[in-house]
């Protein structure tokens, strides 16, 4: 996908691991997903409970087998993944998937953990993880009607490029491009 990027990088964000108390008083831990340390089935179980209304452009898939096949691709070594863990289970997942010289970003928070500030913390932790890996260009698409998500991306420094389609394209520079 052809994509434009802002000229200046976004601010520096702290890489995980870290913990915080969410808006509902729950302790949430943010951590990198590493296949050696975390069972991908723990992530799959979050998506088994995912509200279909929170799906975006066909992901996550709905059928359990399709969820696991999809996770195999986004949890691969060459991707950057951050999990939000609360009440001893995965409640949020954010990912950066390679796309030529850039990365495509997506973030998911379980319905009952939304509107508590977890999305913002998870997103900034993912961007911090990406910065620590030296990633430069990040892009995403967001459905036009999803004002909450658009506001969140804008708040952390994403800019909108391309609004001629059903979904908006937004992008950011994590570090100064070469």
């Amino acid at each position: 996908m052809t994509m434009e990027y802002p000229e200046t990088p976004i601010g520096q964000f702290e890489a995980p691991p870290r913990s915080f108390e969410d808006g509902a008083g729950r302790t949430v831990r943010l951590e990198r997903f590493r296949a050696a340390d975390v069972d991908s089935e723990d992530v799959a179980e979050m998506y088994d409970e995912f509200d279909p209304a929170d799906r975006a452009q066909g992901i996550p898939p709905t059928r359990p087998a399709d969820v696991r096949e999809w996770l195999d691709s986004v949890l691969a070594e060459d991707c950057v993944n951050v999990l939000a863990v609360a009440d001893e289970r995965v409640v949020g997942h954010a990912t950066l998937v390679p796309d030529n010289d850039a990365y495509e970003l997506a973030i998911f928070v379980l319905d009952e953990y939304q509107n508590a500030g977890i999305g913002t913390e998870l997103l900034t932790a993912l961007l911090g993880a990406g910065q620590s890996e030296g990633l430069e260009r990040v892009w995403l698409t967001v459905e036009r009607w999803n004002a909450a998500a658009r506001a969140l991306y804008q708040k952390v420094g994403f800019e909108t490029f391309g609004s001629e389609s059903f979904e908006l394209k937004m992008s950011a520079l994590l570090t100064a491009a070469d």
């Binding site: 996908m1 975006a56 452009q57 066909g58 992901i59 898939p61 999809w70 691709s73 986004v74 990912t95 998937v97 390679p98 796309d99 495509e104 997506a106 698409t141 001629e164 389609s165 059903f166 979904e167």
Partner: peptide, 15 residues
């Protein structure tokens, strides 16, 4: 088309 992430997008003709 599907993005690297797996997101579906309907192109300008379909839209």
């Amino acid at each position: 088309q599907r993005s690297p992430m797996g997101k579906l997008s309907v192109g300008p003709v379909g839209e």
